[in-house]
Write a protein that binds this DNA or RNA. Sequence first.
DNA 1: TTGCGTGCAAATCCTTTGCAGTCCA
DNA 2: TGGACTGCAAAGGATTTGCACGCAA
Lengths: 134, 134
Amino acid sequence: MCRSKGLRITGPRRIIISVISEMADYPDIVELHRRIQAVNRRISLSTVYRNLRQLVEAGMVIRHTFEHGRSRYELAGRLHHDHLVDHKTGKLIEFHSPELETLLDNLAAQHGYKVVGHRLQVYVEASTAADPQD
Amino acid sequence: MCRSKGLRITGPRRIIISVISEMADYPDIVELHRRIQAVNRRISLSTVYRNLRQLVEAGMVIRHTFEHGRSRYELAGRLHHDHLVDHKTGKLIEFHSPELETLLDNLAAQHGYKVVGHRLQVYVEASTAADPQD
DNA sequence: TTGCGTGCAAATCCTTTGCAGTCCA
DNA sequence: TGGACTGCAAAGGATTTGCACGCAA
């Protein structure tokens, strides 16, 4: 895959891609760097940034820009989905809603447009049983 | 309003709030600072940042974090809405969909959460009559 | 008078970049 | 060998903060 993009297969790149392709969550750069350094202590943050940028351009990784702070990265090529974001813990919960997609299609159509993509983050908090208000 | 928040009514603050309450678009800090300095050249960027932060906390202004770069601010107190973004022209079309809100509430509830807010941008393109594919 | 508010500069945080040395093809 | 890749440090852009002074209440 690297070769098809004209990228050389270097030691650092090999490790970075291996860590990335195993990620099942949405780590930020620092966390990724930590995981990568666990394999090879010498790999620098810049190299991780540079490689991640290339992988995003290559379509292998999706970069999410949530609220301010570090971006978080996701392995691409999975079913489209959006996220619930627990604003207290930062935890992400994936969901897929065909109903939502349909709704957006209709909304766009009402304005004479068609949807080509969307970004949605739903900020939530745990709704414990003890919730007087609603 | 300031008084009720325990904020003093200073010269700079008066100008900042007046400029803000007239904004009908989504300016970023630099643009706002420009408008504010058009009234009083001595008002600093930090002061604009500091006041904006307070106004956001006070709920008078909404801070949008689109893709990377400067945040953009919107006068609050209008009906909640989201945006269709024409990805070719950059044009923003506001829309409000109670149906969407309900859907999100339900989705969150299914996961044991309640919605405290959301960010949605729907990227669209003009759907001309001539559209063979779907 | 008190202490919030301000301007300025410096500091932070996240990300990118210049440079010189390294190493893959 | 040549040019892509890397590590390091420094640069950049957005935002915040420390400090001393000024001003509203």
